[in-house]
């Protein structure tokens, strides 16, 4: 297939989902983000810590909205976030003086590492990026960022995914653990 012909696309969009699926996705995402945001507000407000970061919004799409996807499985959710977060912090600490380079290196390396470890989870790229561009509060955490907010937040979202997704008659989660 020629270079330009490839841009036309070769297949079509998969079918949309039914109303029940939409509602279960909504409920899972609501409860998952609520859990993380509530803990953040109730116990961490006024401290130097935080629990909620932007990449969890993206994780919610996958683990509550596309529960069958390989990208949404626990191995990918936890592995992808943890590996990417560590890479993001390392890039910031090493190249923080050159923010554009640190940011690009963090995301690109995070994707490569997730691929290599079979933990590809798109929101991991955001977790890596946030480690670089997240501002002073994030930077002050150092590598603790990998555990809180990233590790703990992802673990809470995972717990909600296990509890809520399996309530739905036509859903089961996960497809695999490791």
């Amino acid at each position: 297939m020629s270079y330009w012909a490839k841009m036309r696309g070769a297949s079509q969009s998969p079918p949309g989902v039914g109303l029940a699926e939409i509602l279960w996705s909504w409920l899972g995402a609501f409860l998952g983000i609520a859990a993380v945001a509530y803990v953040n507000q109730r116990w961490l407000a006024g401290t130097d810590l935080l629990l909620i970061i932007g990449s969890f919004g993206a994780s919610a799409v996958l683990i509550y909205g596309a529960v069958k996807s390989p990208l949404a499985q626990p191995r990918n959710l936890l592995g992808g976030h943890l590996i990417s977060a560590a890479i993001g912090v390392a890039c910031y600490q090493w190249l923080g003086q050159v923010p554009w380079l640190a940011a690009a290196l963090a995301v690109a390396t995070a994707i490569a590492a997730m691929h290599a470890s079979k933990t590809l989870h798109p929101p991991g790229g955001a977790s890596a990026l946030i480690a670089v561009i997240g501002g002073p509060q994030i930077h002050a955490l150092g590598f603790f960022y990998v555990l809180v907010p990233v590790g703990l937040g992802a673990a809470i979202m995972l717990a909600v995914a296990l509890l809520v997704n399996n309530l739905a008659p036509h859903r089961r989660y996960p497809e695999f653990w490791l």
Partner: peptide, 12 residues
């Protein structure tokens, strides 16, 4: 369409 839930794959 017969399988409930979002399938993360294109028909092709």
């Amino acid at each position: 369409r017969e399988i409930p839930g979002y399938l993360d794959i294109t028909p092709e």
